[in-house]
């Protein structure tokens, strides 16, 4: 068995919306350069956990968290940390794509410009590169300056991937990124994600077990705000340690 090199880590993480507790004492590690999938029934807190990893939880009304989230050993919630730096380190793929109200080119260039990652001369090259990585370049190279909203929803999701990669993150977070897509577009995205794990740490939330079996290297199973079981995918899927995990995997709830 390969040694786990943690990239992200949570320590005794609790999250509350008002007075209801959404996460209870969550301590997990997320291994570097692997696809980690958070699975569990709806309402189990998997999306909340994902939101804690890029401080999106702070955007929710009444939300409050306790505990630590360590990125390369540094707590991203410590007061000295700049929230925009934290978010720059992780690209987000939402459930459905939200192209920004600008052209295809500008969507990818957006993050590059904000963080001034490339000089003007290199900008075009960089945009092309990330569109290629996301597998969208061939389809859009002739209409880079068309509004992004003209793309199909599957193309939009790949655009969002390119946009996220363009800020040079270390981590890709995906909140059921294929759930709004047709099967072909979903396959596209899955294929990209498998290629990308060479260079990025990927964390996905999914409620589709088959997808988890296809993609996951590491699995976190959650139930009612707690982590029931976490471990390498083959171990969790083939030899679950807990009764609940076994029940969930066999489709009992």
């Amino acid at each position: 068995m390969s040694e786990i090199i943690p990239h992200l880590e949570t320590q005794n993480l609790n999250a509350y919306y008002g007075s209801t507790q959404a996460l209870e004492d969550v301590s997990i590690v997320i291994p570097r350069n692997q696809i980690t999938m958070i699975i569990g029934p709806s309402g189990c807190g998997k999306t909340t956990l994902l939101k804690c990893l890029n401080r999106f939880i702070e955007l929710e009304e009444n939300a409050r968290i306790e505990g630590k989230v360590l990125l390369d050993g540094e707590n991203i919630y410590s007061p000295s940390v700049d929230v925009t730096e934290v978010r720059k380190k992780s690209g987000l793929l939402a459930q459905r794509p939200y192209p920004l109200p600008m052209s295809i080119f500008d969507n990818v260039a957006y993050g590059i410009r904000i963080h001034r990652l490339h000089s003007r001369g290199q900008l075009h090259q960089a945009v092309q590169h990330y569109l290629q990585v996301a597998g969208l370049w061939e389809e859009v190279k002739d209409r880079l300056h068309a509004p992004a909203s003209q793309l199909s929803i599957g193309q939009q999701q790949r655009l969002c991937l390119a946009r996220g990669l363009a800020v040079e993150p270390e981590i890709i977070l995906g909140d059921e990124p294929t759930s709004a897509l047709d099967p072909i577009s979903a396959q596209h995205i899955e294929k990209r994600l498998i290629e990308l794990k060479q260079r990025y740490t990927i964390v996905l939330v999914s409620h589709i077990l088959r997808q988890a079996r296809r993609l996951a290297d590491y699995v976190i199973f959650m139930y009612m705000g707690r982590v029931v079981e976490a471990g390498p995918a083959h171990q969790v899927f083939n030899n679950p340690q807990h009764e609940r995990t076994r029940a969930y995997l066999s489709g009992e709830f």
Binding site: R87, S90, A94, P101, Y110, G111
Partner: peptide, 26 residues
């Protein structure tokens, strides 16, 4: 949509950048 704001914030934009480039044009 809230998702549009999130899309911009997720890239490490500040709130004002998000308003300026994503919310106001929309």
């Amino acid at each position: 949509p809230f998702g549009l704001r999130q899309a911009s914030l997720a890239l490490g934009a500040t709130r004002w950048q998000t308003i300026k480039y994503a919310v106001i044009p929309k």
